[in-house]
Nucleic acid binder design. Structure first.
Lengths: 216, 216
DNA sequence: AAAATATTACTGACCAGTCAGTAATTAGTG
DNA sequence: CACTAATTACTGACTGGTCAGTAATATTTT
């Protein structure tokens, strides 16, 4: 039954709300299908808008994707950087907080699909890879490196190769994000992120402990 | 200058050699572009053959991809399983051998692109994900779990959560493979896999050591 | 010649991006 | 307050290009 009551307009002008709604829909669709396979028709439909409207707010698919990253990832990075800047306690606690933050804020949200997406499309869309590398990866690595340097400087951590250790710290969390997006449907149970995080923190404590004894 | 000497045929019938050549070309092209974005025209050109010929040997793109996985990955898994079955020495040495094997045989070869590929396309091609999960992931995880159980049984390793620890072991290697495919071009230097592997083995030694002291 | 192997030309589905036109809203006028 | 003109937000049909898969045809081998 078509709705043709003229008192109920077929659509409304909502210039303010559109961008956010479009970006939100795009996060979902990109997360489900990847960048290349995502259809802008689907993004538009999910945002309750026609495809042409997307182009009123974003010049093209790539810029729309960048907007998604800016909205879904960067605020978390900002938070992490503020957290480190104001941290007083032991370095290991900072590390713990950062990893837990990632496990809860990113992994459990729809933003958890973004790492997969970037890895998947980096080869075919080098501009996106560059953008993400500059805006996210570099900052995140610098953040973790700073924590390690801080811990080593005050003798809380034994001396380690910073670059390799940062990768060791990131890898399991990253892998969890990729797993969710790729194989969760195939395994019976959902992966136990809490158990993995606990095991990882335990391993890191042992790995970073100075030779004399465990860190305080 | 067109070659039309009838003594030199424009092409030859080489039923035996084609499949291998096609699979080899496909590994390269899939590795460069991913599954969806890879063009069968490109695979054919690289194999020195026309597109129609691909369909004489493989029913469709998916089956061609499965053939690539079978040829590039499964022999390495077979080797790893034989290695474990015949291993006599300490469990940590086995672990070390397995990781080194991965770092050299997979990471450095074109097969290193396959994990990225699977992760990238799992969502859009669930059949491929299922195939890879059953044929590769399950077996690889079982392999590592067996090493851990073995080491724990004889007191060489402290008791750990097997599933989480397997993921901790795999993650950095997997991440290296993904990194190569995605960001190597963006960073100045190539990632130092040897350093990462050394740091990872060091971390694992500390993580798995029984409380009393380091494993022999 | 007949069979096997290969090529070439084609089809149909798909989709990012465009743009002429339309509906909703706002500003101007008496 | 109407009622009209001007503006702006939005729509949806269309275009141009891509590519997996297929059909028709050609070449090689036996």
């Amino acid at each position: 039954m078509p709705e043709d009551d003229p008192a109920v307009p077929r659509w409304r002008r909502r210039k303010q709300a559109r961008p956010r709604e479009i970006v939100d829909a795009a996060l979902t669709v990109f997360g489900e299908r990847g960048f290349a396979a995502a259809r802008l028709d689907d993004v538009a439909a999910r945002a309750g808008v026609s495809k042409g409207t997307l182009y009123l707010y974003f010049p093209n698919k790539e810029e729309l994707f960048k907007a998604v990253v800016r909205e879904a990832i960067l605020p978390n990075l900002d938070m992490a950087e503020r957290l480190l800047a104001g941290a007083q306690g032991p370095s290991f606690a900072v590390l713990e907080t950062l990893l837990t933050l990632f496990a809860t804020r990113i992994l459990k949200s729809r933003a958890g699909a973004i790492p997969k997406l970037i890895i998947a499309e980096a080869g075919n869309f080098p501009d996106l890879a560059r953008f993400y590398y500059d805006e996210v990866i570099r900052r995140a690595f610098a953040l973790l490196a700073a924590v390690l340097e801080r811990g080593m400087a005050c003798g809380e951590f034994r001396p380690v190769d910073v670059d390799s250790t940062v990768r060791l710290i990131v890898a399991p969390m990253l892998m969890s994000a990729l797993w969710r997006s790729s194989f969760e449907a195939l395994e019976g149970r959902p992966p136990d992120v809490a158990a993995l995080l606990a095991a990882h923190l335990d391993a890191l404590r042992r790995t970073l402990a100075p030779e004399g004894g465990p860190p305080s």
